[in-house]
């Protein structure tokens, strides 16, 4: 099973949407507990009559999807598949608050309509008038990987040739406040680029959207190829985890989901001493923050690294020399419950 990445577009706290090359000017944020996306101008990507109803995440999602298709030269994909851990949080919160503030009476319907997890996938279909397969996954740290697996199966089943797959998650003030109370984030602000060295508990919150044009066929636009996607739910111990990951094969480089939280990062340290010993390792969450679908940002990075055959220094965790990059493994876990691995290969 494989899928060629023939186009991608990501909106993130980095300048990923506009930059031609990978991380030309890494975004540094001093004294932060969260980082937010650098939003592009949406006009030109979204019809104003449709945009007026869209919350920030819907705009970011639709905009990156449309740009991705444009870059890949696809007008009507055979399938649109999205993954989101938390869905359209802003609209959900807005409607929930309106219930209490108005005593359940005379509520504006728009935020309710726009609150479902499939809003972005549906809005893309609506913008393209695309009647094809359309699906949305919403499962914590598996959301994007589930969407990817669905897409790769569709290609294998020969039910589709070109598929748009994407991930989206937004950070809102209420989401930050609540998850902060849950102890997810560092209490003392940090510089994002020094995240891995931080000894305090928690990570920094983030957000982002990333869309990929996947195809059964290699083209001159192909950046890289996805050759495997795996998810592991609550592995019993590190041995089981190692066995599962090694079954994918030995990569030339790993991109790890290290997020600066000593407890969660212990798993990565373990793997780096074990099966990833002597494999150059990178990390990415200092660039995008922690969120449910951050692995989609990592996939965008991996695709760029393979195409450019260049590793941005800002992502490096060690000095192990990097040779030719044929296979990059992205390994991430969310709270030691949702573990996932994506193998990206050169075309």
């Amino acid at each position: 099973m494989e899928a060629f990445i023939n186009g991608l577009s990501a909106i993130s706290p980095q300048n990923t949407f506009a930059e031609e090359k990978l991380l030309q000017e890494p975004g540094e944020y001093c004294d932060v507990r969260f980082i937010k996306c650098l939003e592009p101008q949406y006009s030109g990507f979204i019809d104003p009559m449709a945009a007026r109803r869209m919350s920030r995440i819907i705009k970011m999602g639709v905009c990156s999807a449309i740009k991705c298709l444009k870059d890949a030269g696809i007008r009507n994909p055979d399938a649109i598949i999205t993954g989101t851990g938390m869905g359209c949080v802003e609209d959900t919160g807005k409607f929930l608050i309106s219930i209490y503030e108005n005593d359940e009476k005379l509520l504006n319907p728009t935020p309710f309509i726009q609150s479902t997890h499939n809003t972005v996938g549906a809005s893309i279909a609506l913008a393209l008038k695309c009647n094809n397969y359309n699906n949305t996954y919403g499962h914590r740290g598996f959301s994007f990987e589930s969407a990817l697996l669905d897409a790769m199966m569709l290609l294998q089943e020969k039910q589709a040739c070109d598929i748009l797959v994407g991930a989206l998650d937004e950070l809102t003030p209420d989401l930050f406040t609540i998850t902060d109370r849950l102890g997810f984030w560092k209490k003392v602000p940090v510089n994002n680029l020094c995240l891995k060295d931080s000894k305090s508990r928690g990570s920094i919150a983030g957000e982002g959207t990333a869309f990929f044009a996947l195809s059964r066929h290699k083209s001159e636009k192909s950046l890289a190829r996805i050759s495997s996607v795996m998810t592991f739910f609550r592995p019993e111990n590190i041995t089981e985890l190692q066995n599962r990951i090694t079954s994918i094969g030995k990569p030339d480089l790993v991109i790890l989901g290290i997020n600066g939280d000593p407890q969660g990062d212990e798993i990565y340290s373990h793997l780096r001493k074990g099966i990833f010993n002597d494999i150059p390792a990178l990390y990415y969450k200092h660039l995008c923050g922690e969120y449910d679908t951050s692995s989609a940002f990592a996939l965008a990075m991996a695709s760029g690294i393979i195409r450019e055959q260049r590793v941005p220094d800002i992502m490096k965790l060690d000095d192990i020399p990097v040779g030719e990059l044929r296979n990059i493994l992205i390994y991430n876990h969310l709270r030691n419950v949702n573990h996932s691995a994506i193998l990206v290969t050169s075309c």
């Binding site: 009559m49 109803r53 005379l106 504006n108 319907p109 728009t110 309509i113």
Partner: peptide
């Protein structure tokens, strides 16, 4: 103006509110 059924609901709320 090109409005749709969701706008009709919003305008209904506006009139009542």
């Amino acid at each position: 103006l090109g409005l749709d059924s969701i706008d009709a609901l919003e305008l209904t709320v506006l009139l009542e509110k």
